[in-house]
Measured scan of single mutants.
Amino acid sequence: HMTFVALYDYVASGETDLSFKKGERLQIVNNTEGDWWLAHSLTTGRTGYIPSNYVAPSD
């Protein structure tokens, strides 16, 4: 899985979304859904959809 880092805080707007904090590391499970990607937080262990423009590839 690709690892990304959150650029901003995001508060989930629905049950399927994943809240995260700036700097949180996320594994992308599925990024074929356009602007919303299914991600797994390496910080909280939770999985949900995130806005793709809130994250950047982590080196």
Results as ranks from 00 to 15, higher is better:
H1V: 11
H1Q: 13
H1I: 12
H1A: 13
M2W: 08
M2Q: 15
M2R: 14
M2I: 12
M2F: 10
T3K: 06
T3Y: 15
T3E: 14
T3V: 15
T3F: 14
F4K: 03
F4Q: 04
F4S: 04
F4P: 01
F4A: 07
V5P: 02
V5G: 01
V5E: 07
V5W: 05
V5R: 04
A6Y: 00
A6N: 01
A6S: 06
A6G: 06
L7P: 03
L7R: 03
L7F: 03
L7H: 03
L7A: 04
Y8S: 07
Y8F: 12
Y8H: 08
Y8R: 09
D9A: 04
D9I: 01
D9Y: 03
D9K: 01
D9M: 02
D9V: 01
D9W: 01
Y10M: 03
Y10S: 02
Y10H: 05
Y10I: 02
Y10C: 04
V11P: 05
V11Y: 09
V11R: 06
V11W: 10
V11K: 08
V11M: 10
A12M: 04
A12V: 04
A12L: 03
A12R: 05
A12G: 11
S13Y: 10
S13Q: 15
S13E: 13
S13N: 11
S13T: 15
S13V: 15
S13H: 13
G14T: 13
G14L: 10
G14C: 15
G14Y: 09
G14V: 10
E15N: 11
T16S: 13
T16Y: 15
T16E: 12
D17S: 07
D17P: 02
D17N: 09
D17G: 13
D17Q: 15
D17C: 10
L18A: 05
L18D: 01
L18N: 02
S19M: 06
S19V: 04
S19C: 05
S19R: 04
S19I: 05
F20Y: 01
F20G: 00
F20T: 02
F20D: 00
F20L: 08
F20A: 02
K21V: 11
K21I: 10
K21L: 10
K21Q: 12
K22N: 03
G23F: 04
G23K: 02
G23N: 05
G23I: 00
E24V: 01
E24W: 02
E24C: 03
E24L: 00
E24N: 02
E24G: 01
E24K: 00
E24I: 00
R25D: 05
R25G: 04
R25K: 13
L26D: 00
L26S: 00
L26Y: 01
L26E: 00
L26T: 00
L26G: 00
Q27P: 00
Q27F: 15
Q27K: 14
Q27N: 09
Q27T: 12
I28P: 10
I28L: 07
I28M: 06
I28R: 06
I28G: 03
I28K: 05
I28Q: 03
V29L: 15
V29D: 05
V29Y: 11
V29P: 05
V29I: 15
N30S: 14
N30Y: 08
N30I: 09
N30Q: 10
N30L: 10
N30H: 09
N31T: 14
N31E: 11
T32R: 08
T32P: 09
T32H: 10
T32L: 12
E33F: 13
E33K: 12
G34M: 11
G34T: 14
G34L: 11
G34R: 12
G34Y: 08
D35M: 10
D35R: 07
D35E: 12
D35H: 13
D35T: 11
W36N: 05
W36P: 06
W36D: 03
W36G: 02
W37A: 03
W37H: 03
W37D: 01
W37Y: 06
W37G: 00
W37E: 01
W37I: 08
W37S: 03
L38S: 02
L38I: 07
L38K: 04
A39E: 00
A39Y: 01
A39C: 06
A39G: 05
A39M: 10
A39V: 12
A39T: 02
H40N: 07
H40Y: 14
H40R: 15
H40F: 14
H40M: 14
S41N: 10
S41E: 02
S41L: 03
S41Q: 05
S41P: 00
S41G: 02
S41Y: 01
S41F: 01
L42S: 05
L42I: 09
L42H: 06
L42R: 04
L42W: 06
L42Y: 08
T43E: 13
T43Y: 08
T44G: 04
T44N: 06
T44F: 02
T44I: 02
T44V: 02
T44C: 03
G45Y: 05
G45A: 05
R46L: 14
R46V: 06
R46S: 07
R46D: 08
R46F: 08
T47S: 11
T47Y: 09
G48R: 02
G48P: 00
G48N: 01
G48C: 01
G48M: 02
Y49V: 06
Y49F: 11
Y49T: 05
Y49A: 03
Y49R: 09
I50V: 11
I50A: 02
I50R: 00
I50E: 00
I50F: 03
I50H: 00
P51W: 04
P51S: 03
P51R: 05
S52W: 08
S52C: 10
S52H: 08
S52Y: 08
S52N: 07
S52M: 09
S52A: 14
N53A: 14
N53W: 15
N53V: 09
N53P: 06
N53M: 10
N53C: 12
Y54Q: 05
Y54K: 06
Y54V: 06
Y54M: 12
Y54C: 07
Y54E: 01
Y54A: 14
V55T: 04
V55R: 01
V55N: 03
V55I: 07
A56P: 04
A56L: 09
A56K: 11
A56G: 10
A56N: 06
A56D: 06
P57Q: 10
P57K: 09
P57W: 08
S58F: 15
S58E: 15
S58V: 15
D59T: 14
D59H: 15
D59P: 13
